[in-house]
Simulated scan of single mutants.
Amino acid sequence: MLRGVDLELFPGQIVALVGENGAGKSTLLRILVGLETPDLGELRRVERVGYCPQEAALYARLTVREHFRLFGSAVGLSVEQINQAAEELLDQLSFAQYADSVTDELSLGTKAKLNLALALLGEPRLVLLDEPHASFDWDTYLRFWELAKLRRQDGTCIVIVSHRTDDTELCDQVYNLSNGKLGRVS
C-alpha cells in the first residue's frame, strides 16, 4: 500500500524507482498512467504518457508490424507516422528482422523490445517503464540506454523501475519506495 507518495517529474529527466519486491513500484506506475486511481491526493499528468508494463501487453496472433499499426492508431498517428516510427524503433532496438513475425513466435527478449517500442510510439513526454530490460541481452541493454539518453535530450521524462544497481548511476534522480513511502536517494 502506498502512503503519502510525493513525486515531481521534470522534462529531460531519467528517474529510477527502486525498492523491494512488493513495495508498490508497479502500483505507483499504474496510478501515474491512469490504470489505477489513488485513494487520496492529486495527480497531474502531461498530455501523452507512454507505458511499458512488466508483463507485455501483446496480442499473440498479431505480427510486430500489426502491433505498431494498432497501437499507433490508438495514439492518433497517421499511417505514414506509424510506418516511420516503426522503422526507427525496429532499427534502434535491432529487431527489424522480426517485423512480420507473429508475436507468439518471438523470444521473450524480442517481445520485451516490442513492448518497449510500443510505449515510445507517438513520442510521449512522459515514459513509464516497469523493468523494461529484464529480458534484454547485453547489446539490447546498451541500445536501450542510448535510446533513453536520446529521449532525455528531446525533453522526455523517463521513469524506470529497476533492480539493477548499475542503472541508477545513469539516472538523474533515484527514489526508493519502502513501506509505502517514497524517499529520494540521489
Rank of each mutant, 00 (worst) to 15 (best):
2 L>W: 14
183 G>H: 08
127 V>L: 01
139 D>H: 10
70 L>H: 04
84 Q>K: 06
91 D>Y: 13
118 L>A: 01
163 H>L: 03
114 L>R: 08
78 S>I: 05
122 G>S: 12
77 L>V: 08
105 E>K: 15
80 E>M: 00
15 V>R: 07
99 A>S: 09
92 Q>M: 12
115 N>C: 03
103 T>S: 11
62 L>S: 08
73 S>H: 06
137 D>Q: 12
179 N>G: 01
124 P>I: 11
152 R>D: 04
124 P>R: 07
61 R>V: 04
169 E>N: 00
1 M>Q: 02
55 E>G: 00
126 L>P: 13
108 L>Y: 05
139 D>N: 13
3 R>A: 12
30 R>S: 06
144 F>C: 07
88 E>I: 04
98 Y>D: 00
86 A>G: 04
74 A>H: 07
150 L>W: 09
64 V>L: 09
116 L>V: 13
177 L>E: 07
71 F>P: 00
112 A>N: 05
146 E>D: 15
39 D>Y: 05
166 D>A: 03
19 G>R: 13
47 E>A: 09
37 T>P: 00
163 H>Q: 09
124 P>A: 12
154 D>I: 00
165 T>H: 06
146 E>L: 10
68 F>N: 05
19 G>Y: 10
124 P>D: 11
56 A>D: 14
23 A>W: 10
97 Q>Y: 05
112 A>K: 12
66 E>W: 04
130 D>V: 03
166 D>P: 02
7 L>D: 04
155 G>S: 07
14 I>F: 01
99 A>D: 00
158 I>H: 01
147 L>W: 14
133 H>P: 00
72 G>R: 10
171 C>Y: 01
130 D>M: 04
171 C>W: 01
127 V>Q: 01
37 T>H: 06
134 A>N: 06
129 L>T: 09
76 G>I: 10
167 D>M: 04
30 R>E: 06
25 K>L: 06
60 A>E: 11
52 C>I: 10
72 G>D: 08
155 G>L: 08
163 H>A: 05
67 H>T: 12
21 N>G: 09
63 T>E: 02
140 T>P: 12
19 G>H: 09
138 W>Y: 13
3 R>T: 12
106 L>M: 15
90 L>F: 14
139 D>A: 13
64 V>H: 05
163 H>P: 01
142 L>T: 04
32 L>C: 10
185 V>N: 04
94 S>Y: 00
28 L>A: 08
108 L>M: 14
155 G>Q: 11
5 V>M: 10
95 F>Y: 12
17 L>H: 11
12 G>D: 12
99 A>V: 03
14 I>S: 03
128 L>F: 03
92 Q>S: 12
131 E>G: 01
123 E>K: 15
18 V>M: 06
113 K>G: 01
184 R>F: 00
138 W>P: 01
156 T>E: 08
98 Y>V: 01
104 D>E: 14
44 R>D: 09
111 K>C: 14
102 V>H: 01
28 L>C: 08
178 S>V: 13
13 Q>S: 08
63 T>N: 02
15 V>F: 06
84 Q>L: 05
110 T>D: 06
25 K>F: 13
121 L>H: 08
149 K>M: 11
